[in-house]
Design a protein around this nucleic acid. Structure first.
Length: 496
RNA sequence: GGGACGGUAGCUCAGUGGUAGAGCAGCGGACUUUUAAUCCGUUGGUCGUGGGUUCGACCCCCACCCGUCCCA
């Protein structure tokens, strides 16, 4: 079927495909390459031609034709497979006039298979001298221009398949992402953590302060929520006695899009009984270091032109300590003054704090405005106030403070962890306060989760728990400026 | 939500009020070791969408859509 908006290029290719169909099977499925391009370069790339050619190494390769140079009775074509590229040398004499003429009509982007022997060209490029050549999958759509490739960011995101065909950097980024995830998984299982999967559909959204997506279960005729965090389910498993669990999976938050936010994103959350937030900080640090070494081969990485040293111990600062470091103009008295901070937030940043908000939350807001973006080197911020940490254990020594940290690197939040609140009565109180806040207009406040309270009432051992934002970590480790660069299919508005 | 910038051929881009351009890709031709092959010829456009100003709009004005970045 040819539609009107198709270019001449596509129409031309459809005609070629039609001819292929008339000749027999247009999309053969019996192609069995024996070698990948990268293997060939690794095994034979260094050999001089005089050594290679007498060996007559026979290979079968397959891949997408990315370059094609026809010079009369002989041609070069470059195939790209999952690993690399390999050049084919195709002579009319070797494959016959009929096939050679057909090859001349094949297009960039077509998927080919070839068999032949390895040799080196005049300029020393490892190539296959082809004696069997097939068109395996006809490509109907023209690829982007071979030199500049695909540059348009929007098309890279909307048509990731084209981006992956054209841009090795993109392929490398997602390969690095895969290494990060498997390094983390290995690190966790190596420390006796059990990998689990908990529900994505929640009857009550919980475990974070965020707006959920809603959906509907038809058979049960009930509203459900896509999860905003797995936290409350993972802690139920701690109650159940697993003691060390982790989950790497998607969370969904109904918020805007930005270079740091995608509505669905990947978190690892882990919980370890008989640990606390101090243990978590040491452990998280090691985990991130292991991921960096897996992805980059080093723990000293460069992000957007500036070095980040993940090898040395991460700094630790309190919220107030961080404000004093990055905004030394504030006095201790001012930082203890609810009225002052409230006025300052309003005057300098136009932030209108809700009426019920206390000193701790106001200090946190001030920290976010003055210090957060400057925390380039890995820094744990500790001493989060109880009122913004409804699931964290309160400090035994400092009133109003929890045993909680957030980790910032390159000015971005990467992880959030705390000693878990395992006192069911305290937790029930905290939930009630959240419900009050929700009623007072805080639409990110939590719901009361009665089953979670029931679970805690069976007794949960003291536990440390932490979430690591995988996408943001991958951004850091792949030097990607936008979260969309590390998510294969980022969310976009529908095409016009 | 606000601001800046962008959307022109399949791709990468030029064009600033007077007949829409180049390179690559495509098509036809030459060429048996090329490397973005080269050479000759050639097809291809709702200039994001809709209004407006003007004798005349890719260009100026307004609204909208999509994107990138910054801010909230």
């Amino acid at each position: 079927m040819q539609t009107q908006d198709e270019s001449h290029v596509i129409a031309e290719r459809r005609n070629k495909l039609k001819a292929l169909r008339e000749q027999g099977v247009a999309f053969p499925n019996d192609v069995r390459p024996t070698h990948k391009a990268a293997e060939l370069h690794a095994e034979h790339g260094e050999k001089p031609g005089e050594e290679l050619e007498p060996q007559a190494v026979r290979v079968a390769v397959a891949g997408r034709m990315m370059l094609k140079r026809v010079m009369g009775k002989a041609s070069f074509a470059t195939l790209q497979d999952a690993t690399s590229r390999i050049q084919l040398f195709i002579q009319r004499e070797a494959i016959g006039e009929e096939l050679y003429d057909a090859f001349k009509k094949w297009d960039m982007g077509d998927i080919l298979s070839a068999e032949g022997t390895l040799f080196k060209t005049k300029t020393g490029e490892l190539s296959v001298k082809v004696d069997v050549l097939r068109l395996v999958s006809k490509s109907l759509r023209p690829l982007p221009e071979k030199f500049h490739g695909l540059a348009d960011q929007e098309t890279k995101y909307r048509q990731r398949y084209v981006d992956l065909i054209m841009n090795e950097d993109t392929r490398k980024t997602f390969a690095a992402r895969s290494r990060v995830v498997s390094a983390i998984r290995n690190f966790m299982t190596g420390h006796q953590f059990l990998e689990v999967e908990t529900p994505m559909l929640h009857p009550i959204p919980g475990g974070a302060a965020a707006k959920p997506f809603t959906t509907h279960h038809n058979a049960l005729d009930m509203q459900m929520f896509l999860r905003i965090a797995p936290e409350l389910f993972l802690k139920r498993l701690i109650v159940g006695g697993f003691e060390r669990v982790f989950e790497i999976n998607r969370n969904f938050r109904n918020e805007g899009l930005s270079v740091r936010h995608n509505p669905e994103f990947t978190m690892m959350e882990f919980y370890a009984a008989y640990t606390d937030y101090k243990w978590l900080m040491d452990f998280t640090e090691e985990c991130i270091r292991a991921a960096a070494i897996a992805a980059c081969g080093t723990a000293t990485v460069t992000y957007q032109g500036r070095e980040v040293d993940l090898a040395k111990p991460f700094q630790r600062l309190t919220i107030v300590g961080a404000i004093k470091k990055y905004a030394p103009e504030y006095t201790d008295a001012q930082l203890d003054d609810v009225g002052f901070i409230r006025a300052e937030l309003k005057a300098k940043w136009g932030i209108e704090a809700l009426a019920h908000v206390g000193l701790g939350a106001l200090q946190l807001a001030l920290f976010e405005e003055t210090a957060e973006s400057q925390l380039w080197e890995p820094t744990y911020i500790i001493d989060y106030p109880v009122e913004v940490s409804p699931l964290a254990r309160a400090s035994d020594t400092i009133p109003g403070i929890t045993e909680r940290f957030e980790l910032f690197i390159t000015g971005r939040e990467i992880a959030n962890g705390f000693s878990e609140l395992n006192d069911p009565e305290d937790q029930a109180d905290r939930f009630r306060k959240q419900v009050e806040a929700k009623e007072a207009g805080d639409d990110e406040a939590m719901y009361y989760d009665a089953d979670y309270i029931r679970a805690l009432e069976y007794g949960m051992p003291p536990t440390g728990g932490c979430g690591i934002g995988i996408d943001r970590l991958v951004m850091l480790l792949t030097d990607s400026p936008s979260i969309r660069d590390v998510i294969l299919f980022p969310h976009m508005r529908p095409e016009a």
